[in-house]
């Protein structure tokens, strides 16, 4: 019976495709395990007290650590967040509260969504041309600024989405009590959306703490202790890049250590934001 054969072929095709699909998912998890495993195994050798407390060693010498780069990355990220969070929260507030489906809000939303995935190296290049060239030197400020530019669209869009999740009734109830709009936002709506907004900010911080490209031309890197944001600032990602590309084994070890540290911090931040929101992350 041709019909019978046809059914068998359909079932076999189905099994084949389902098998491929399952294998794809397994492959994804296997790659995750492989990469994390390699980073952990190779990075763990670099992790010791010196790694967190000392300056990098000169080429070819053993010992030393990346304490200056850790401090620098923390400072750059924190400064970037200080710039980007108020900026993004305000912009997101406009989109959710005053946009009213208007054209301005639609365009800003569209542009932010694009900027979220825009190439970060171009951001670094623009900040180089706008800040580093006129001031005549690389600086932590320029680095923090380019990280902030990358954070802003993320914070803007998360704030927008989270504010729109707050029920209208809550706004009406507050306004009915005679509160002005700004008072309602500060006292009620931001609080209601706080968990979601914190998630967005943490995700943005996680994302920029692993960014390298925008720092190459702005914060540059430095083998010395942090000396303010007016000069080049040591940071983990550019250090990782330079050390991994160097010919020295000791520097390779430190680079793996940096990779482990960055990966763990990013994954912990991402995990935290997931717990806060209690739902799926993007």
């Amino acid at each position: 019976m041709p019909n019978h054969i046809d059914t068998r072929r359909r079932v076999l095709t189905n099994r084949l495709v389902m098998g491929i699909s399952t294998l794809s998912a397994m492959l994804g998890l296997a790659m995750l395990a492989w990469i994390l495993g390699d980073v952990a195994l190779k990075g763990i050798h670099a992790i010791n007290w010196d790694f967190f407390t000392k300056l990098p060693p000169p080429p070819g010498e053993t010992g030393g650590g990346l304490a200056n780069a850790m401090l620098g990355t923390l400072l750059l990220t924190a400064t970037a967040a200080l710039i980007a969070v108020p900026f993004g929260v305000m912009a997101g507030t406009f989109l959710a509260e005053f946009g009213h489906g208007g054209r301005v809000a639609a365009v800003v939303r569209y542009v932010s969504d694009i900027l979220v995935s825009a190439p970060s190296i171009v951001v670094g290049m623009c900040v180089y041309l706008l800040v580093v060239v006129p001031s005549g030197h690389f600086s932590g400020w320029a680095g923090a600024l380019s990280l902030a530019v990358i954070m802003i669209p993320v914070v803007t869009r998360t704030t927008d989405e989270m504010l729109r999740l707050v029920p209208t009734e809550m706004r009406e109830a507050t306004l009915a009590l005679g509160a002005p709009y700004w008072r309602m936002m500060l006292g009620v709506i931001y609080r209601a959306a706080a968990a979601g907004m914190t998630t967005g900010i943490l995700l943005a911080v996680a994302r920029v703490s692993g960014e390298t490209a925008p720092l190459l031309f702005t914060a540059l890197n430095s083998p010395y202790w942090l000396d303010g944001l007016n000069g080049p600032v040591a940071n983990l990602t550019v250090t990782l890049f330079n050390y991994a590309m160097s010919p020295y084994d000791e520097w390779h070890t430190l680079a793996w250590g940096a990779a482990l540290l960055i990966t763990v911090s990013v994954l912990v931040l991402t995990g935290f934001s997931r717990i806060i929101l209690g739902t799926r992350i993007r």
């Binding site: 996680a206 703490s209 960055i262 994954l267 991402t270 992350i281 993007r282």
Partner: peptide, 16 residues
């Protein structure tokens, strides 16, 4: 798992 794969910084992918 898939979303963690998305969170790993690109420089770690490069080094690996």
């Amino acid at each position: 798992g898939i979303e963690l794969l998305a969170a790993i910084p690109s420089i770690v992918y490069g080094m690996w």
